[in-house]
């Protein structure tokens, strides 16, 4: 398929995943910040400030509801849900003939629903929450439609690859913000907020017997291959989709890099004792993902994204 089309699909996936992740995180933070401190000592710090920091925007003076508002419907912020969805919509327009009609409609409707302040009633203090709910539901629907209506071919692979790269990057980003390294590392208190921000609360409860404290939660989000949004699971799936999409996976740079990263994560899961610091792994993995992103651009998109990175 055309490199340009593959590139658009890849970014369509990334933008959709980013909007979805942002929505989940905003919802979790909104709920948590309405209330005071919990009896259960927190082991991580992740609030509206941290959320903004994830998108590279640190502004301590911001009031929490303002911060969340910026991440939802503020068209001026590149990290807002609205911006992500608008970019996804543009990308979808470009590849309308490649994706299914249902999928285009689902994306288009979502963007229309978010524009101009969103739905009536979203102005209340619950606005960020309601908008997040909407985006969560809509993105779930978009992914569902794509799974049921798109041919499982190269195009679907690049769409999925974009989503997978974005999710793992977001999770790593969040972990690095919430669990700073070294002396400033908090005691192993509860880390429910991280699970809620990813939407993995129930999955965690069923997969892990330890209480949802910072270390076991971080391990879960990094290594649990049975949980679809963990970094390890995303990397595994990336390996699958690139292997399928690549014409010659045996000597493909991105495929080799991805499979090496998958093996690395699996090794570290077993090698690292419980409670070991995970900061370095988060950092290395994120760097490795950036390199994969670059390799992908070079091999499949005729160097498109790498041009962007170099700038």
């Amino acid at each position: 398929m055309l490199a340009r089309i593959a590139h658009e699909l890849y970014w369509l996936g990334r933008n959709l995943a980013r909007a979805e992740f942002t929505a989940r995180a905003v919802e979790a933070v909104f709920q948590a910040e309405l209330q005071g401190t919990s009896d259960a000592a927190p082991g991580v710090s992740f609030g509206s400030g941290g959320l903004l920091a994830m998108f590279g925007d640190v502004d301590e003076s911001q009031h929490s509801s303002q911060a969340l508002g910026q991440l939802t419907l503020d068209a001026e912020r590149p990290g807002s849900m609205l911006a992500s969805i608008e970019r996804a919509r543009e990308g979808a327009r470009t590849v309308r003939d490649v994706i299914s009609a249902e999928m285009w409609e689902a994306i288009n409707t979502t963007a229309l629903g978010l524009r101009g302040g969103g739905q009536p009633g979203w102005t209340a203090p619950a606005g960020p929450y309601l908008a997040s709910q909407y985006v969560k539901e809509r993105t779930a629907l978009i992914w569902g439609v794509s799974n049921r209506t798109m041919l499982r071919d190269e195009a679907k692979c690049f769409l999925d690859a974009g989503g997978l790269i974005e999710i793992s990057d977001m999770v790593l980003r969040m972990l690095r913000i919430a669990m700073p390294p070294g002396d400033s590392a908090p005691a192993d208190g509860q880390a429910l907020i991280l699970l809620q921000a990813v939407g993995g609360f129930h999955a965690y409860l069923r997969a892990v017997t330890a209480p949802p404290n910072a270390h076991p939660v971080a391990r879960f989000l990094l290594f649990e291959r049975a949980y679809p949004d963990s970094v390890a699971a995303c990397v595994d799936s990336l390996n699958d989709v690139f292997t399928m999409a690549d014409a010659g996976p045996r000597n493909s740079k991105p495929v080799l890099r991805v499979s090496r990263l998958a093996a690395d994560l699996d090794f570290q899961r077993r090698a690292l004792p419980d409670g070991a610091e995970l900061t370095d792994i988060c950092k290395q993995t994120q760097q490795e993902l950036a390199r994969i992103d670059q390799d992908v651009a070079e091999r499949y998109f005729a160097g498109a994204a790498s041009a962007g990175l170099r700038r």
């Binding site: 400030g49 990290g79 980003r173 690095r176 994204a305």
Partner: peptide, 25 residues
């Protein structure tokens, strides 16, 4: 209730978001 205060917010700066732009196009 001060004893239950949370840990300080991380002062580590995360890497910049992956580029949102579309490179050559």
């Amino acid at each position: 209730d001060a004893d239950r205060a949370g840990p300080p917010i991380a002062d580590t700066q995360p890497p910049a978001l992956p580029d949102l732009r579309y490179g050559a196009w």
